[in-house]
Design a protein around this nucleic acid. Structure first.
Length: 629
DNA sequence: CGCTTTTGACCTGCGC
DNA sequence: GCGCAGGTCAAAAGCG
């Protein structure tokens, strides 16, 4: 009675919501994160819990109202509330509309002990058929009205119709139920808000962890620095202890969806953000996790300018950023490298810019030297605090080529289409960092880095690891090798869920991008591996097993005995990886692209190039894809 | 009216 | 120190 379904569900559902993350949050985009699939059922039930009472009553009332006698007669005599509940939970999925139980008043007699059996049977019949009642039945039964109405169903019906007192009681009950429903709705809304916050925290923490992992890779041997990693964060320590190579993979899916553990991490981190005393990491943690500063960043201009550098651990970093972390010069350079890692996409498009699933706001335009076409600067506007930016510029040599350069990582949930670039950007940053970390000469030796990071150096991607803006350039403007796309996916070990067997052309946009990002990230690990081997062949063991790509695995073995060049040649020989990348990009720009980006879609579908050139670039080469250089 | 775009000014880093 | 170039800001204008 008092325990009322509402209260019980609240407490239960709270934990439920926490575990289920955003699924109940309609405001947020769908979360493709596979880890949450197992929660889907729960989440659905949760959504339905918002309308539990009325659902059962509705059906019950409906049937009861129209054919009470038949229902009572046909229904099984015995029933347990719990049984009904269980059934209800199952069926609730299909009964979406909450129903205010105005009619419920008519059925207050259900609680009557004398008629209980019959009523229960009626309910049960309904529940079996559709959506049964919830514990609210108990609430209803608990009404005194029913007690007064003790008697058979028939008498109840008659009394309900004739008795004014029953009507009044029914009205009271209805009012109570409505209030209860309102409370539930408010509670649900509150939980949704909580979920949103948790999701945001998770995203921010995820980015921060990626940054930490990258730092650890750089200074993995420096135990002193490891000790400096945010003290008191057991979760992060797990990451450290568990092996830096595993965790990043998980985080490469920037999907907002998080497991309960992840949510806990995010929560704890958000709580800890003011606690951690280590200056190096704190700046990132505090600023990233705190959404408010971002708001101020936008609204308060000067403040935003001062705070934004701190707030961006791996995202866009203003030039002032290094000043804020004076204690760790080495980390500064690492962070700066990571922050400024870029992913540049060259694609043929007549549209002003390619549609990548994110919302952008133009904040500046500048004439770049050597290119008559202006360079436009865009900022992600999907979230207030998102600092991801991109530059769009047309190629001076070929105006049909649109060069889009992404920087930073999103700190908010992304739609599947947007996941592409987000994953890619993160992967690229990780990749570049990985390469630079494994070898001190990584940045200084672009050739080596490029070959190591993207062994399939024959096509598609150009690496420019030169400081301060290491860039991965994906060139989609060249004609692809059609055979690559015709190869059956079985030859390509990467599994594309939901993908057709006819190749990548059918792959959906939401999936490939992740794979693409993952592939890049795997490549980054590979690069680290390669470089590590060159440097000292020590860490191969624990990195190798985690490389899902068939090609990479193939290369690992040769790489054990051979040089980086040998591994590069091996990967290059197998075009599958290149084809996958090309297909992913095709999906990103074509399939994921906005309808109005017709040119881009068409072009990329037909002309994706897999030209991966190892470029030795310096700054000029990084922008070298830009026309002027 | 609010949001976006435009655009000149400003800031910063780098090379000479 | 100076100039150049890249990048960003923010007021003004445009747009729905």
């Amino acid at each position: 009675m008092d325990k009322g379904w509402g209260l019980t569900l609240d407490s239960d559902s709270l934990g439920f919501f926490l575990n289920n993350n955003n699924n109940s949050n309609n405001k947020r985009p769908p979360q493709p994160h596979p880890q949450h699939n197992h929660h889907n059922k729960r989440s659905i039930s949760l959504d339905n819990t918002m309308f539990p009472v009325n659902l059962g009553r509705r059906d019950y009332h409906h049937q009861h109202h129209h054919e009470p006698a038949a229902a009572a007669a046909s229904s099984p005599p015995s029933d347990h509330v719990e049984t009904r509940r269980a059934v209800v939970d199952e069926v609730d999925f299909f009964a979406k509309k909450p129903r205010l139980a105005s009619e419920d008043a008519d059925h207050h007699d259900r609680d009557d002990d004398a008629s209980k059996a019959n009523r229960v049977s009626v309910k049960k019949e309904n529940s079996l058929g559709e959506a049964p009642s919830r514990p609210d039945l108990d609430v209803n039964t608990g009404l005194h009205l029913l007690t007064a109405n003790t008697g058979s169903d028939q008498s109840t019906v008659d009394d309900g119709v004739s008795s004014d007192s029953d009507d009044k009681r029914a009205k009271i009950e209805l009012a109570q139920l409505q209030m209860e429903l309102q409370r539930m709705n408010i509670e649900n809304q509150r939980l949704k808000d909580m979920l949103g916050q948790v999701s945001n925290n998770y995203s921010v923490l995820h980015n921060h962890l990626v940054a930490l992992m990258q730092q650890q890779q750089t200074h993995g041997t420096d135990s002193a620095q490891e000790n400096e990693v945010v003290e008191g964060k057991s979760e992060e320590r797990k990451v450290e202890v568990g092996g830096s190579k595993v965790v990043p993979i998980q985080f490469m899916n920037p999907g907002p969806g998080a497991t309960a553990e992840t949510d806990e991490i995010s929560n704890s981190s958000s709580e800890d953000r003011t606690i951690s005393g280590s200056p190096r990491n704190n700046s990132n943690v505090v600023k990233n996790s705190d959404v408010v500063p971002y708001d101020s960043d936008r609204d308060g201009k000067k403040v935003g300018r001062e705070e934004s550098p701190e707030s961006e651990s791996q995202g866009w970093v203003p030039n002032k950023a290094p000043k804020l972390t004076p204690n760790k010069p080495i980390d500064q350079s690492t962070e700066a490298t990571m922050r400024k890692a870029r992913v540049s996409v060259r694609a043929r498009s007549e549209a002003p810019m390619i549609t990548d699933g994110c919302q952008w706001r133009k904040y500046g335009q500048k004439m770049a030297k050597g290119n008559p076409c202006p360079r436009a600067y865009y900022r992600c506007t999907m979230a207030v605090g998102c600092l991801v930016r991109k530059q769009v510029q047309r190629c001076a040599e070929d105006r049909s080529i649109l060069i889009t350069t992404y920087e930073g990582n999103h700190n908010h949930p992304l739609p599947p289409a947007a996941m592409a670039m987000a994953s890619t950007t993160t992967a690229a940053a990780s990749m570049l960092l990985s390469g630079s970390m494994s070898s001190a000469d990584g940045i200084m030796n672009p050739n080596l880095l490029a070959r190591a990071i993207l062994p399939c150096s024959s096509s598609m991607a150009t690496i420019s690891a030169s400081a301060p803006f290491p860039t991965v350039t994906l060139d989609l403007t060249h004609n692809p090798n059609p055979l690559q796309f015709q190869r059956p996916p079985t030859q390509f070990p990467i599994h594309f869920p939901g993908q057709g067997q006819n190749g990548f052309g059918s792959v959906q946009t939401a999936q490939l991008p992740q794979v693409f990002g993952q592939a890049l990230y795997n490549q980054s690990k590979f690069s680290g591996l390669q470089l590590s081997q060159e440097m000292g062949h020590s860490q191969l063991g624990h990195q190798a097993p985690q490389l899902p790509l068939h090609q990479t695995q193939q290369q690992q073995q040769p790489s054990l005995a051979d040089t980086v060049s040998a591994a590069t040649a091996a990967i290059t020989a197998d075009p599958n990886f290149t084809a996958a990348l090309a297909a992913a990009i095709s999906s990103i720009i074509g399939g994921g692209a906005h309808p109005n980006n017709n040119t881009s879609s068409t072009t990329t579908n037909n002309n994706i190039s897999a030209s991966m050139t190892t470029s030795n670039s310096n700054n000029s080469n990084k922008m070298g894809n830009f026309p002027g250089n």
